[in-house]
Design a protein around this nucleic acid. Structure first.
Lengths: 257, 257
DNA sequence: ATCTGTGAAGCCCTTCACAGCT
DNA sequence: AGCTGTGAAGGGCTTCACAGAT
């Protein structure tokens, strides 16, 4: 999922499909809520509804973990919470560093979901010397110079990058060199990492652009031609004929060969 | 022009696969960077490297948009920027509201990527009366009471939810009732929406949990090289284990019958 | 009677490999 | 000669539908 990854037929992970892994946290959240309400058992149908998936998918997912249900009855909530937690590696404590304590970094540091489930903010790191020592979310910000030392002395293997795009690759390189093998990247850049390092990215503007695509499609379909969308005028300019074979419109004016 | 107003089989947008749509913003970003460096043309190989995908995939993706390249040469950068922008609906201006101006909401409001590409923060909304009027990112925060009025008078169709989990569904319902048809949800909850409304979710703790899973797997592998057997061995070992066929360990103490 | 666990079918996406332009 | 555009093959995920357990 990271950058260019060479061939690898079938990872010896444990045979759990990536798509399933990505849903386990969803199930876990739903189960935790049930657990807090002291619900003892739950059917695949009920749990699936709570997690927002369909029940066949949920059962298939669980089948990769083992046979944890009881036919005719359902799943034991507490038992499943434990099994999924263990599968996800949440029965241990993961120290995490956040690099880049701007608006977003601070928001992440304050995010409750961190501590609640196996993750502990071990340090906040920023390149601005003026930030050093300032407490954010009850933790003193440390300067980037300390990065390697912090990683090593805390045994950190997960790093969160919340720096500007320009600094992200450099920070990433330093994190990896110091021993980090999993990175959550909030900077709008493609990170290049060595094999064996996992990168996941969260990109706000990409999400919005995907929504815009679907939004545009809705607007175009529901009422035939363009309805009263604001600033739709720009788009009308593209209604010229040309030799390009695009499905809809062409370049406004300038266009090279 | 070639706008096929033919029969619509089902939910197929315009034949552009969802996976392709999700990558268009990535290409767009890479192309924008090239454009700023005044690079006139780029090959599928080069652009793919910059976007972190492989070139066959990129060419296939572009083939859904039309034939925008020149064989033997590559793609014209400016032309592609325009075509992808248009496809994503970024040639028009999308007013967006952000609901929930806590740490995260403020970070989002300050996020530059918003304004830079077709999106405009039309309003910031918070339930706390004490927040009302306070400027965040140069915009005055408005109270939730104004929500419907703001949506309608600004023609907002995209909403961002950055509230606590407990308030998310309620806010969502109000947004939808007021006319919003696309929602970006940062609250750790499954949102229920009517047909025709798109929801995308960004969930920090889920991303971390996925990383933890892989991190755990790495740690487990360097210790003992199990004979490279994916699912088969798991099942084989489990069959011997006894009742429950969990691959590894069982519940510490309590466990149902 | 009920609900899980799972082969099998179907679908979508990715990757390959080469035909077709320039 | 070089690079795009694309049919075809391949792989993974989802959905179906029912056998199997309690």
């Amino acid at each position: 999922m990271a950058t260019g990854r060479t061939h690898r037929p079938a990872t010896r992970s444990r045979g759990i499909p990536e798509a399933t892994v990505a849903r386990l946290p969803l199930y876990l959240r739903a189960l935790t809520a049930l657990s807090e309400r002291s619900v003892p058992t739950v059917s695949s149908e009920e749990l699936a509804a709570a997690a927002g998936v369909n029940s066949a998918k949920l059962r298939k997912d669980f089948s990769y973990l083992g046979s944890y249900g009881t036919r005719g009855v359902g799943y034991d909530v507490e038992y499943l919470v434990y099994q999924i937690s263990r599968e996800l590696g949440l029965t241990q404590d993961w120290p995490v560093v956040i690099v880049g304590i701007g608006n977003l970094g601070a928001a992440l540091a304050n995010y409750g979901g961190f501590a609640s489930r196996g993750f502990r903010v071990a340090a906040l790191i920023d390149a601005d010397p003026a930030m050093a020592g300032k407490p954010v979310a009850g933790i003193g910000v440390q300067h980037t110079d300390e990065l390697e030392h912090i990683i090593e002395s805390n045994g950190v293997s997960i790093g969160v990058i919340a720096t500007p795009a320009g600094a992200a690759q450099q920070v990433c390189d330093r994190l990896v060199a110091a021993g980090v093998t999993s990175i959550l990247n909030f900077a709008p850049t493609v990170l290049t990492v060595p094999d064996g390092v996992d990168v996941r990215k969260v990109d706000l503007s990409i999400e919005l652009q995907i929504l815009a695509f679907h939004e545009q499609r809705k607007a175009g379909e529901e009422a035939g031609p363009d309805s009263g969308t604001p600033a739709a005028a720009v788009r009308a300019a593209a209604a010229v004929a040309g030799d390009r074979k695009g499905p809809d419109g062409d370049m406004p004016a300038v266009m090279p060969a």
